[in-house]
Each structure stands twice: as C-alpha cells, then as structure tokens.
Computed example of a mutant assay.
Amino acid sequence: MSTSIQSIGVDAPARDYQTAPALVFEPFDLPQSNQRQLGAPHPLGTTIPLALRPSPFRIENINLDDVITTVKELQSQDKVLTKLLALHGALLFRGLPIHNADDFSRFSHAFGYKPHEIIGIVVTRPVLAPNVAPANKAPKEVPIHSHNESPQVPHAPGYIFLYGHKAPSRGGETPMSSSIELFRRVQEEIPEFIAELAEKGLRARITYKNEPQYPGGSTLKEAFGKKIVDGDDLATRRSKIEAQIARYGRGIHTTWEWLDNDEGIVVSHHLPVIRTQPGTKLPTLFTGLASYYTRKGQVEQSYGDGTPIPNRYLKRLVEITEEIRVLHRWEQGDVLVYDNIIAQHGRQPWEGEQTDRVVMASLFDGDEVPGAYGEADWAQVVQALEG
C-alpha cells in the first residue's frame, strides 16, 4: 500500500550529529487489515492512517526530548502535522520512547493545541497526567461503534490523541474511518437521509443525574458543577449549573429542564450532523448515530424537530461505517492522533481481563470549529465560552 508523503523531518545543521542527530519521521506500510486507501472525495492514494516512525538512522539514541523538539519544529513550519491530519484524518506514531502517561502528555502537548475542556461530560475521566485520562472504561465485552468525539454536545474537541500503554493479546482494536467518505457514501446510497439531516438537524436529549446512571458514568456535578462548593443551597447550585450550560453559546438551541425532586436535569441540543471541514469546505458526517443505534444510553437522539430517525437509515449507516473502516491493532507505545472533524474512532471487545487493555486519551481544541452546511442558524457550532 502506497503512502502519500516522503519522510518528514527537520534539518538541524547547528546540532552535533554525534550526540543529537536530526529526527526524521518516515511513512511505512501496515497490513491491509489495518490501513486502507480512502475513497472519494479524498485524493487518490490517501491512506488512513498515515503511519509514521523514526528513521532507522541511529534509532538506538532516540529520546523523547528529540521527538518533542522535532514535533514542535514541524508544527512551526506551516503546521506540517496538522495539515497531514487534515488530509489523512488519522496519524499513527510507532516506535517512540513513550512509556507512561507523563511521556504521552509531553508528546501530545508538543503539537501546540489548546487542551479541550469537556463541558457536560457523560463518563468519568480521572486525570493521570496533564490533559491525560483513561479512554472509555466500558466493560471489555461492550463494543463502541465508530463515532466522532462528543457529537451529542455543541463543544467538541478538534483533535484526539490515544496512547496504547498496554495491548491485549486478542481483540481491543480501535476502528478508524473517514467522516468525509462516510458523507459521500450515505449521500449516494440514501440521499433522502442526508436531505432530512440537512433540513432538520439532530435533537440530542441528555439526562444528567446526581448519581451515575451506569458504571463509569458521570454525575451532574461532574458534568456541570465545577463552581459548586459545599454549603451552596439548591438555588445557588442550579444557578451555577445553568451558567455552565450557557457556556455552550447556543442560545435558544440549547435548553434544559430540571427533574422533579432535585434528581437531575435534562439538557437538549439542536445540532448539525452535517458539518464542513475548514479549508476544503467538504461536508462531513459528524455523528455518533451509528453508536447510538447499536448501544442505547443516557442520550436520546431524534431529528431536530423531535420526529424519530427511521431505523432503516441508522442500520444502513452502521453498515457503511463498517465497510469503510479499518481496525488498528495496538502495539505497546503506539500513539494515534485523530482530526476529530473528519475522522471517527471506536473500540472493539477483547479477550482476557479488563486490565489487559490500557489506552489513554488526550483531547485538544482546533484553531477552527467545523463550518455550517446550509443557512439555518442552528447549523453552526461555536467554541464554548470561557468560564
């Protein structure tokens, strides 16, 4: 399988090459089960993922400081890695000296992105290192279908970093696929579904309660209560929660209703499923509908006008997603980086113990949010307000 670039690196003539050779990332091929050429409208020969590793030149001397310096220099040179992400959707880095959460944190921050704050989190994410948390900790038997991160809320990360700290011997792969290719396929096969999504958008209703609703789920306080302190009365707590919800900046397109007996709150968002990639303006299906169809949870989803989405559309969406995805087989130390606007990820079940697979995640904002598809005022998302 051909890759679309030559080796990338930074010339460093001022360095002492005997002690600190310039680091070069070279593309390499993966098995066809783990890498594929993307379909239209991607340029011919574009692979997902683009797999990169350090050049064999003096590889025994590689250290994390050299890797970080090279990443920073590549990003300073017209954001080379960001542009590769915008083309391929996902990058795989293999063979780097990353051994723990702190190493992973340093590597991911080297890209220069702003750490993403999850507003309205629905799962618990304990902090392991700066801007690093465990990936989804659902039971190992539970598959997580391909999705863009945080499609059910207005404020989603631009980039997702995943680090394979421990890989199971069988299973546990991470799917990857193109949201741009997905849009094209769905438009060709079920254009009436695309037309309805463009006209109506999506209504996501998320229930947050005072206690977790499932193992690993978040509480209302974890989702919106970062300003709450001991001693706050009911009115104050609610005011602080509502202020956090208002940070989405969506006005009338985000509403909420309090449950009886102070049990929690239901937050509703009118959101675009179809968004556009900055720069190319290509439409992308930014969605978790396939995951929602295969695994019900605390999020209810319908068309933006409240009418149900026909199961025949969702069923075919799942099938197309599985047709165009590849499964990343983890090796210890691998790092996957996703452009969340145009690439989807997920998780396959694995055999053995729950602890046999340890994947960590780090989320970052992009410089731009995805653009609108159409003229409706609900069709444009915005960066969340500070607070």
Rank of each mutant, 00 (worst) to 15 (best):
Q6W: 00
D11P: 02
A12W: 06
A14N: 00
Y17A: 14
T19K: 02
L23A: 08
V24R: 13
P31R: 04
R36S: 06
G39H: 03
A40E: 13
P49V: 07
N63S: 13
N63F: 09
I68T: 02
I68S: 00
Q75W: 00
K79V: 07
L81K: 02
L92V: 12
A101W: 10
D102I: 11
S105Y: 15
F107Y: 15
G112T: 11
K114T: 14
H116K: 10
E117D: 09
N131P: 10
A135D: 12
P139F: 04
P143R: 06
P143F: 11
H147L: 08
E149G: 01
S150C: 10
H155W: 10
G158V: 10
S178F: 08
S179K: 04
F183T: 01
I190G: 01
F193R: 08
E199T: 13
T207E: 02
T207P: 00
P212M: 03
P215I: 06
P215L: 05
A223W: 15
G225S: 13
R237L: 09
R237C: 10
K240S: 02
E242R: 08
I245M: 01
A246R: 10
R250N: 01
G251Y: 12
D260E: 15
T276A: 10
Q277A: 10
P278R: 08
K281Y: 05
L285G: 02
S291Y: 08
K296Y: 14
S302W: 11
Y303Q: 03
D305H: 09
G306Y: 14
T307C: 05
P308Y: 10
R316W: 07
L317T: 05
E319A: 12
E323G: 04
L327N: 13
W330Q: 09
E331C: 06
D334A: 14
V335S: 03
D339Q: 11
I341R: 13
E351S: 09
G352I: 07
E353C: 06
T355C: 13
T355N: 07
V359L: 14
M360W: 15
S362T: 06
F364W: 15
G366V: 04
G366D: 13
D367S: 15
V369H: 01
A372V: 12
G374K: 04
E375P: 00
D377S: 15
V382R: 15
V382F: 13
E386Q: 14
